[in-house]
Design a protein around this nucleic acid. Structure first.
Length: 880
RNA sequence: GGGCGGAUAGCUCAGGGGGAGAGCACCGGCCUUACAAGCCGGGGGUCAGAGGUUCAAAUCCUCUUCCGCCCA
């Protein structure tokens, strides 16, 4: 016997352990089975499970469990990402508590600390995924800095180098002065901020006047090497080619013309600082201007900045403005809204600067990746993400892959100090220059962008560059489940790398799910205090409730606005599953069942529930196959609660009292419960497994490996669906009359059903007990003819009429009110339909079925209206 | 500036040319032997606005307003 309510804490841990011990999560390589594989989007080692992970992994788990039950050999590769900058920051903060910086420790010692940290905390998120019930193939767990994956990284780097797709060069890049590293374009977050626009006067060398330039970053003027104007700009035509004297510095700089200059901005003349501005960098290259670097990697002014050298960039800004003002060279300053780039990790204002970095040429890699999506080899779900992907890929820029941090894959390059040779090698260590034989080699200090190793994840985790059985069996993977914010960072790059190195797409589908936000639609963040912690929710409501909520809300391509109350609501559903099962188990006690029944001999509602079950199985499968998880979940929910619990279980109580039906009803109860549990298992694994363990006649010891329900078309019965819907109409009708008159507990009411035909009459006669019990009345008779008596309330149904004897209780006024309202509804509908049917165009052009349907509705409404009118007339008579 | 979504019941959303739906919330009644975390009944909508296409528009098209997000 089950407890009175479901307690997740008692069972969740137990079942997860059993599943793991039995090896259910691991693939079997059974050649008979079709294959299904997923690689996890590896969470950062620094991470703790947040609600986004919970959603992402719940969805993957639904797929993995569904496919596993459906006979697939499933591999779900789990793992974690070393998260270069993020992790380094965490450990730096930790040693800062001891008063140390990473430079105090030195590279080697610092990395030891990071590894130690990783050993200690890196497994947290994995443990949390287990709490969530994620059925990952743990024997395949990988870490992006594992030996094998590191080997893959080096191999890829070397091959790309050999193919000429990797190069090193002086480029302007985004620099984070706090993290002390270059950032890729994608790693910069832009934000609107209030700033100022300063108008600076640059004197002409010949003393004939000034050109005024506007800037939001006056300190960069120290590095100006030109002023540019638009060649079409009449105001400045005469200045082109002249020389200016750069204030505070005294450098002579030219006025140049470039079509990229926006004449609308500021004065139309712009200062050119090639070393510290992306647009200026491009212009300078076109015009062969010199590059003067005035801000260094710490965000301080360099020697080139003369007397400002050593000042912080923001301090220098103030000083430059003051000094220009003093010299009368500041024309004005005004408030200005500008867009500033910030480091996505530490939120420091980034500084564009020139530096030597490693890049990958993306254009050649992008082409096949575009084609793969264009020709449908990879499908985004929902497909409107295609456009975003294409836009990005068509305009792709080279990827800056070097980072000036210590935690990450070291770039496998050595420089010969004798002959300057650049050596790129697959080996861990290079001892000797292959060109000059020198042993004086200096290794590259930089590490690779974290996303470099992530890009290889689908095949590196399966053992590439070895030709492994895993790769052969499970690559390409079936689907990638992720959210849209990393389409560029990750998805696009995996497609490019997968195609380039495996010669095959990495996955067939990319399912893009929503981002979880709070109930007001805002991004959850610790600082806003609106975070819903999945672990806390699991503690409070149980894992199944959390999972079901996330999936039920996960409509495609939308934000998920999550309020805690939703989780609480779905916890009720979990409890409902528990209690319905409890009822079935109680009913079955003491009966030996066979698992078989003769469908033909089953009573109406048994046929009906089996038929409804088939429809639900079909729908759930279809929705899962289409990645419409919310609809799959809701279909299972409705079937279970509104059909099985609300109707069938209630009716079964009556059937079981009848010796003729008792046994088969139990068989059907068990059958429907078992199929429902299986249907629900991918969504709510723990409660279903716990109940399964108590059931008789199971086709497998554990539900996790039980076969997913398959539609049995022989059980679909449209006839019983029609019949049941009439009976339900009768029952609901009686209930509503009783409720309207506050008679819910009164049983001794006389109810007469006036059937429209013999068939309906017989049907209701047969199911009399059901009607009486479910509507809680004692007298129910079915007739073909009946004249309403005074004191009877009449209810017009689609196939007949109900009469409830309320002598002495009837409230004529209230009844007239109700009927008038109903009459209004019917008349409105009738009017709509009649209008359509009297329209010649409609009759000529609309499809036959539609016309037939409209005619049917019209007849139905007319009949209903006649009955209502007749009844209204009678009531008024009663009254007088 | 460019692009993509969205606007449907009090709230959160589904539906995507042929009778306006769900969950939650709300109101009323029930301790009915699985479940009060429950059962039964009920109220509530010019489907953002304007125009168009169509026999027929919440649904397709155009414009407007507002709200998100992404890119520059």
């Amino acid at each position: 016997m089950l407890d009175k309510s479901y307690d997740p804490k008692k069972v969740e841990e137990k079942w997860y352990k059993i599943w793991e011990e039995k090896g259910y999560f691991e693939p079997t390589y059974d050649p008979e089975k079709p294959k299904f594989s997923i690689v996890i989007p590896p969470p950062n080692v620094t991470g703790v499970l947040h609600i986004g992970h919970a959603l992402n992994n719940s969805i993957q788990d639904v797929l993995a469990r569904y496919k596993r039950m459906d006979g697939y050999d499933v591999l779900w590769v789990p793992g974690t990402d070393h998260a270069g900058i993020a992790t380094q920051n965490v450990v730096e903060r930790e040693i800062a508590k001891e008063g140390l910086t990473r430079h105090d420790l030195g590279r080697e010692k610092f990395l030891e600390r990071v590894w130690k940290w990783k050993e200690q905390y890196g497994g947290r998120i994995i443990q949390q995924l287990k709490k969530l019930g994620a059925s990952c193939s743990w024997k395949y767990e990988r870490f992006t800095m594992d030996e094998g994956l590191s080997r893959a990284v080096r191999e890829v780097f070397v091959r790309l180098w050999e193919e000429g797709l990797i190069y090193r060069g002086d480029y302007i890049i985004n620099w984070c002065p706090r993290c002390q590293t270059a950032l890729a374009d994608l790693e910069v977050e832009f934000e609107n901020v209030k700033g100022k626009l300063w108008y600076l006067k640059y004197p002409l060398e010949d003393g004939s006047g000034f050109i005024v330039v506007a800037t939001t970053r006056p300190e960069t003027m120290l590095g100006d090497t030109a002023v540019a104007v638009n060649p079409e700009d009449e105001r400045y035509k005469n200045f082109i080619g002249k020389t200016l004297v750069l204030p505070l510095v005294g450098r002579k700089i030219p006025v140049i013309a470039d079509p990229e200059v926006d004449p609308e901005f500021g004065t139309g003349a712009v200062k050119i600082t090639p070393a510290h501005d992306f647009a200026d960098f491009e212009i300078a290259k076109r015009h062969n201007l010199p590059f003067v670097k005035v801000i260094d990697e710490q965000g301080r002014m360099t020697e080139e900045a003369g007397s400002y050298a050593g000042l912080d960039r923001f301090e220098a800004r103030k000083r430059v403005v003051e000094d220009l003002k003093a010299q009368g060279l500041l024309e004005k300053e005004e408030d200005y809204d500008l867009v500033l780039g910030h480091c996505y990790r530490c939120h420091t204002v980034i500084e564009p600067l020139i530096s030597k970095q490693w890049f990958i040429s993306m254009k050649p890699l992008a082409q096949p990746a575009i084609a793969a999506v264009k020709y449908g080899f990879i499908k985004f779900v929902p497909e409107n993400w295609n456009n975003l992907y294409f836009d990005w890929m068509y305009n792709i820029r080279d990827w800056c892959i070097s980072r000036q941090i210590w935690w990450g894959h070291r770039i496998p390059v050595w420089y010969c100090e004798e002959c300057g040779e650049v050596i790129v090698s697959r080996e861990d260590e290079v001892k000797e220059c292959p060109k000059c034989g020198s042993s004086k080699l200096k290794p590259e200090e930089d590490v690779l962008d974290t996303w470099f190793s992530s890009a290889l994840w689908p095949f590196s985790t399966m053992g590439w560059p070895e030709k492994t059985k895993t790769l052969e069996t499970f690559y390409p993977t079936s689907v990638l489940v992720t959210s849209f914010d990393i389409i560029f960072f990750w998805v696009a790059r995996m497609i490019m790398m997968g195609l380039h190195f495996m010669g095959q797409i990495p996955f067939r589908h990319v399912y893009i799910h929503a981002l979880v936000r709070d109930e007001k639609g805002q991004k959850m963040s610790k600082s806003k205090g609106n975070v819903i912690d999945p672990l806390e929710m699991i503690e409070k409501y149980g894992t199944d409730a959390l999972r079901f909520t996330l999936i039920a809300l996960a409509a495609q391509g939308r934000d998920i606005k999550l309020a805690e109350s939703r989780i609480e609501g779905f916890k009720h559903f979990i409890n409902k599953i528990w209690n319905a099962s409890r009822f079935v188990l109680m009913s079955l006690e003491g009966t030996e069942l066979s698992g078989k029944f003769d469908v033909e001999k089953l009573p109406l509602f048994s046929k009906w529930i089996l038929s409804e079950l088939q429809k639900s199985i079909k729908k759930v499968r279809q929705k899962l196959d289409e990645f419409e998880f919310d609809q799959a979940a809701m279909e299972a929910y409705h079937f279970f609660w509104n059909k099985f619990c609300d109707w069938y279980i209630e009716v079964s109580k009556i059937y079981m009292k009848n010796p003729e039906f008792e046994r088969d009803t139990k068989e059907v109860l068990l059958r429907v419960l078992k199929d429902s549990l299986k249907l629900l298992h991918p969504f709510v694994p723990f409660v279903t497994e716990e109940i399964w363990s108590k059931l008789p006649l199971k086709e497998s010891e554990h539900i996790i490996v039980a076969p997913y329900p398959v539609v049995d078309t022989s059980l679909i019965s449209e006839r019983s669906e029609r019949e049941v819907s009439l009976i339900q109409e009768v029952i609901v009708g009686i209930r509503s009359v009783k409720s309207d008159y506050n008679l819910t507990s009164k049983k001794e009411l006389k109810v007469i059903f006036k059937a429209e035909n013999q068939t309906s009459l017989e049907l209701l006669e047969r199911e009399k007990e059901v009607v009486k019990t479910l509507s809680r009345i004692e007298e129910f008779s079915c007739v073909l003819e009946h004249q309403r008596k005074k004191g009877e309330v009449s209810l017009v149904l689609s196939q007949g009429e109900l009469f409830v004897d309320l002598t002495g209780l009837i409230d004529v006024k209230k009844e007239i009110e109700r009927l008038t309202k109903e009459k209004g509804r019917v008349e409105k509908k009738l009017e709509q339909v009649s209008k359509k049917l009297s329209n010649r165009n409609f009759l000529e052009r609309a499809p036959k079925e539609i016309i037939e349907k409209e005619k049917r509705i019209k007849a139905e409404m007319e009949e209903k209206l006649a009955k209502i009118e007749r009844y209204l007339g009678e009531l008024k008579n009663d009254d007088s």
